[in-house]
Structure formats: C-alpha cells, structure tokens
Simulated scan of single mutants.
Amino acid sequence: MTLRSIKKIHGSEYRPIADLITYSPMPTRSLDMIDPFLFLNHHGFQTYPANNRGLPFGPHPHRGMETVTFILEGDIMHKDSSGHESVIEAGGVQYMTAGKGLIHAEVSSSEFKKKGGDLEILQLWLNLPAAKKMVSPQYVGLQKEEIPTLELDEGKVKIQQLFGEWSGVSGAFEGNFPVSLSTIYLDQGGEFEKEIPAAENIFFYIVRGKVNVNGQSVPFRNLVEFSNEGSTLKVQAEEDSVVILGHALPFNEPVVAQGPFVMNTEQQIYEAYQDYQNGKFGSWNG
C-alpha cells in the first residue's frame, strides 16, 4: 500500500450569482482543471424565504461537455431543447450530456419558490473526448432512492455510486468514457480506503465537514489535488462530512473553453456560436 501523495489543496473562490451563494474551487487562479474534470460550482448552503425567485439559471446553451448535478438540499427543475423535463429533489442527481449542442434551464420548482427552504447544490462539468464531442444530447435525472448505494465501516460511510464500480456496486449512470464518481457521506470517525491506479487523475472535493485524507486534515470547500504517485486513498472523517470523489484517466487533449462551450480548437468554438445562433441546438419553448 502506497499512499497517493497530495500536490496541493485549493480553496474555493467566492462567486455569488444574483442572490445565490456560490463558491468555486475550479477553475481558479491556482487550478485550471484536473483532466477530465473541468469545473465545479458549489451553491449554498443557504435558506431561501417563502416567495423567492429560486435558482437563476434560465435557458442557455452547451456543447462538448457533460454536467453532473448533486442536489443535497432543495430541488432543481430541469428542462431542455431535446424534450427532457424533470424535478429532482434532495439526495438526487442529474446527468446531462450536451454533446453536439442543446439549450437547457435549471430552475427551482414552483413549490420551492412558493414555500422556500434549504438549498445546497453542486454542479460538476466533465469533459468529453474529442471523438465524442458531437454525440447526441442525453439527460437522466434520478431521485435519491433510485441511486445504488453501499455502506462501509459498519454503516459510518455511505456511498452513492454514480459512475463506475465500487466493491461490486455499479454506478447509476452509463458514461461516455470510463470514469468513477461517488458522493460519500461520512459520520464522524467513519473511514475508508480505496485503491486508484496511479495513472488516473483524482477529483476530491469536501462539500461539508472536515476529513483527514492521506494524513492531511482538510476542511469543507477545499479541493485536494493529488500527484500521480501512489495508489491508495485513506480517508477518515474528523466531523460529519460529505465528499465528492471521482477518478479517470486524463484525455491529454487540447481544451478550448469559452462560456458554455468546451471544444478542442478555437475554430470549433466559433462554429458552436454560429450553430447556436442558427438554431441548430434545437428550439426552446419556455
């Protein structure tokens, strides 16, 4: 057993969006991306009053990437130009492949806007390999009870397995490239170990609480960047905690990102804007 060495710990930058509390650990001035993990926004925790405006993410386009949205508190109503529509509640997860292009909106349900309540939501962007940038858009939204889970350390560690496999439990979603992604809920004192091939990049973000990872104490709203030396993660919760853990082989491909589009060349970005303006991302009926 060789512990994976920690390269750097990255704090989140505060980036509020209207009245939505938002922190982002990636990209920042200290970290561009962890290939193929591109971007993370952490919204909340906050409590909305009754008769609120809810989430501010009205219709907007995407191309060349995927989103995984974690709903810890509150809800999200998703609608897109491919005809998908759902309301996912606390504990649920959304997976959307933008591929060749779509328009979508992510707003709060009418019930949440009327009644208010707690809200904490994270959105992670995954890159798509060059060969799959222009796949057809897809969307799957799953409620908490529809997501496979496993327990470790006598129930003190509960894992939602989203992509890939962990101890014989297969993830809820079928991805466009090999990736493992989990939401991990740890009671204070709960611990786990996981072997991850040294060639794979690790995405490790502490959503709540404080954990000790490979001998280093890290509080919430921090992202741990690992080197590619060693293969073991050893994690113990110093407080009740929530962690997002992902790992995958890097693509090692050029990344050109501009606004909502993530492609491999500047020309492809130009084409994305042209296609969007020419109505090739589908029609929006709000």
Rank of each mutant, 00 (worst) to 15 (best):
I269W: 01
Q274C: 02
P250A: 04
V157H: 12
Q258V: 10
Q274M: 05
G171R: 11
P25D: 12
L128G: 01
Q216V: 11
G44Q: 06
S24L: 12
S12L: 12
F39I: 13
L186H: 06
E253S: 07
E145A: 08
W125T: 01
G64L: 09
S180P: 03
F192T: 04
H78G: 03
N201L: 05
K7E: 11
L40G: 03
T47C: 06
G171H: 10
M65Q: 14
N212A: 02
S110D: 15
G91L: 02
K280P: 00
I147S: 09
G101C: 01
W284F: 15
S5A: 12
L126E: 06
E174Y: 14
L233Q: 02
K8Q: 15
G175I: 09
G83I: 08
Q143V: 03
H60M: 14
E85A: 11
T47E: 12
F70H: 14
V179H: 08
S12P: 05
P197K: 06
G92E: 01
S81C: 13
V169M: 10
G246N: 05
N285Q: 13
L20W: 01
H42M: 14
K8C: 06
E165C: 09
Q258Y: 14
R63L: 14
E154G: 03
V242E: 10
V256R: 10
G117R: 05
P178C: 14
G117D: 10
E146W: 08
L31H: 02
S167D: 15
V68R: 09
Y276M: 12
K280Y: 05
S82D: 12
R63W: 12
Q46W: 04
E85G: 03
K133M: 09
Q268K: 04
D240L: 04
L119C: 10
T47G: 03
G44N: 07
Q160H: 11
I88P: 03
F281V: 02
T47V: 15
H104F: 08
R221P: 00
N201M: 05
N51A: 15
S86N: 14
L128S: 02
S283C: 03
K7D: 10
S227T: 15
S5I: 08
G282K: 03
P27T: 11
D80T: 13
Q160E: 10
A98E: 10
L40M: 14
V140W: 02
S12A: 15
F57K: 05
E253N: 07
I269N: 00
F220Q: 10
D75L: 13
P129H: 11
D240H: 10
Q236N: 06
F112P: 01
N212K: 11
Q258C: 09
I196M: 01
E66A: 15
P27D: 13
E145G: 04
P25N: 11
A198Y: 05
Q268M: 08
F177N: 13
G11V: 13
S231N: 08
N222C: 04
F261Q: 03
Q216I: 06
Q258P: 00
G175H: 08
E85R: 13
A199T: 07
A130D: 12
L152S: 04
P16H: 05
T47K: 14
F203N: 01
S217T: 06
E200H: 09
D240T: 09
F204I: 00
E66R: 10
Q123P: 14
M77C: 08
P25A: 11
D187M: 09
S30M: 12
N51G: 09
S217N: 09
A50E: 15
Q267F: 00
V135Q: 04
V157P: 12
K234C: 08
G246P: 04
T47M: 08
N212T: 01
A50W: 04
Q46C: 03
